[in-house]
């Protein structure tokens, strides 16, 4: 649905060059929620602005719904009619909502319809319908300043949906909201994704957002995508930084002669209560040192760090059992408790 190829953006100011994007290849499938995460300054904002060409990429192509936007754009800095038409079919939601304080909620949602040249009656019918969809039917005549942050973002989402887009871009849409409101906005985005088949590309610096609603994710660093894939693919990738961030596990062995392993739950296999099965089958005591688990669609997804008694050689059979269940088992990167190693490890992080 959204494909970028070799997307590069270089800012030039006073002879200095800053590379914000450095050859980004991104592929967002139709109907999925795709999250791009990274530190501030990693180029996420530039990336999402390049998708609807609010920023002109220095090189590379952007294709949305089969239409090559970079080819449409032409040479000049101003957007031509074709590009504007294409943009009207891509919804965008902003961190700071960007609602017009001079207009009522309803009138804000009508703005994109005015731009599209929709007649007055049709506009207000559509606006009220969208307000109902985002659960703010009673706020049509209010002004944005009278709403809470979460309500404002709902208006922002309703406005982004006014042009019946197939694609929604979300630029840190929950970063200005408190955790509870964030959850309700994410729930709304998830519902819209399911009900309308909306493809959502979102950028965020909150792992929680990716964990909550994303089907796929990419990690950006210094203008490059360093990791990408579906959430379970990422989990299955040994040493994946994104998976470690999404499902962080920690914990040191409680004593010498213990085996510490990280068990990754993903895919079909993760429906069985494997840990208790393991314990009963081999009559061993297992302690859980740390775990980051979620249940998504009845399946357990996440990672767990467990400790088995005895050295690794003694635990080959139980570990084999876990692997047989379709779980991914890695010996955890922990050493025998020694202060020097600890500081070394933290330095490496």
């Amino acid at each position: 649905m959204i494909t970028t190829k070799g997307l590069t953006k270089v800012y030039r100011s006073r002879g200095r060059e800053v590379t914000a994007l450095d050859g980004v290849d991104l592929h967002v499938r139709e109907g999925e929620v795709y999250g791009v995460v990274g530190q501030s300054g990693a180029g996420k904002s530039t990336l999402i602005r390049c998708v609807n060409l609010l920023e002109r990429p220095s090189s590379g192509t952007v294709t949305v719904a089969g239409q090559d936007l970079t080819a449409l754009a032409g040479r000049g800095p101003r957007a031509n009619a074709e590009l504007r038409k294409a943009r009207s079919r891509i919804g965008m939601v902003f961190q700071h909502f960007n609602l017009l304080s001079s207009r009522t909620v309803q009138s804000n949602i009508e703005l994109p319809l005015e731009i599209l040249g929709v007649s007055g009656q049709e506009r207000s019918r559509k606006a009220l319908e969208l307000l109902d969809l985002v659960g703010l039917a009673d706020k049509a005549k209010a002004y944005p300043a009278q709403l809470s942050g979460g309500q404002k973002q709902r208006v922002g989402i309703a406005r982004a949906l006014a042009g019946d887009p197939k694609v929604l871009l979300s630029d840190e849409s929950t970063s200005a909201l408190d955790p509870e409101t964030t959850r309700s906005i994410l729930q709304l985005l998830r519902d819209l994704n399911r009900q309308l088949g909306l493809t959502i590309l979102l950028i965020t610096h909150e792992m929680e957002v990716v964990k909550t609603i994303c089907d796929s994710a990419a990690l950006m660093k210094g203008g490059r995508v360093v990791e990408h894939g579906t959430v379970s693919e990422l989990l299955a990738t040994p040493g994946s930084e994104l998976a470690a961030e999404l499902f962080p596990v920690g914990g040191e062995p409680s004593g010498p002669d213990r085996t510490v392993v990280d068990v990754t739950f993903h895919g079909e296999a993760a429906t069985q209560p494997v840990i208790s099965q393991l314990s009963r089958t081999y009559n061993i005591d297992i302690s859980i040192l740390g775990a980051a688990m979620d249940t998504v669609c009845g399946k357990q997804v996440g990672r767990m760090r467990i400790e088995l008694p005895g050295r690794f050689e003694e635990n080959v059979v139980p570990i084999g059992f876990l692997r047989e269940q379709g779980l991914q088992v890695d010996v955890a990167p922990v050493n025998d408790p020694a202060p020097a190693d600890k500081s070394l490890k933290e330095g490496a992080k």
């Binding site: 609010l54 943009r87 960007n98 304080s101 001079s102 406005r159």
Partner: peptide
């Protein structure tokens, strides 16, 4: 950001001036 929002809806320069800059 308001100008950006209007542009993301497909608004041109006139839209930005008449519907965003002047009213705001």
């Amino acid at each position: 950001g308001l100008v950006e929002a209007a542009q993301s809806m497909g608004g041109g320069t006139w839209t930005v001036v008449l519907k965003v800059l002047l009213p705001q």
